[in-house]
């Protein structure tokens, strides 16, 4: 169970920073910083730069994703922005437009 959950129907405009997990079902605009995993669920809208650990996207993200671990774009995900991560997977059916920066 994640420690921070932004439910559907909630809008946060501003900055979220946490040293724990974040699960987003709602809307976040601004900036999101987590030390642990970030999960953008189906139906969620994130218009923010995300930096965190393992990041899973099934919703819409407009902004750069900077992960210290892996980034998984699942089917149905819609991401516009650059991704910097150690590993990246893009599932069949995910939409993505942006630069990818991985340690090669």
């Amino acid at each position: 169970m994640a420690s921070t959950v932004i439910g559907a129907g909630i809008t946060i405009e501003g900055e979220i920073s946490t040293d724990e997990d974040v699960v987003i079902h709602g809307t976040v605009r601004g900036k999101l910083t987590a030390r642990e995993g970030v999960s953008v669920e189906e139906g969620a809208t994130v218009e923010a730069d995300i930096s965190g650990g393992a990041t899973k996207v099934a919703g819409a993200v407009t902004g750069n994703i900077h992960s210290s671990d892996r980034v998984d774009l699942q089917a149905g995900a819609r991401v516009i922005g650059n991704v910097k991560a150690t590993r990246l997977t893009i599932a069949d059916g995910a939409q993505f437009k942006g630069n990818v920066d991985m340690d090669v």
Binding site: A2, S3, T4, V5, I6, G7, G9, I10, T11, I12, E13, G14, E15, I16, S17, T18, D19, E20, D21, V22, G26, G30
Partner: peptide, 16 residues
């Protein structure tokens, strides 16, 4: 249900 966890810091507006 929305939870702002113990280690979380939100700066800005929260509505819903």
């Amino acid at each position: 249900v929305t939870v702002i966890g113990r280690g979380a810091h939100v700066t800005g507006r929260v509505e819903g």
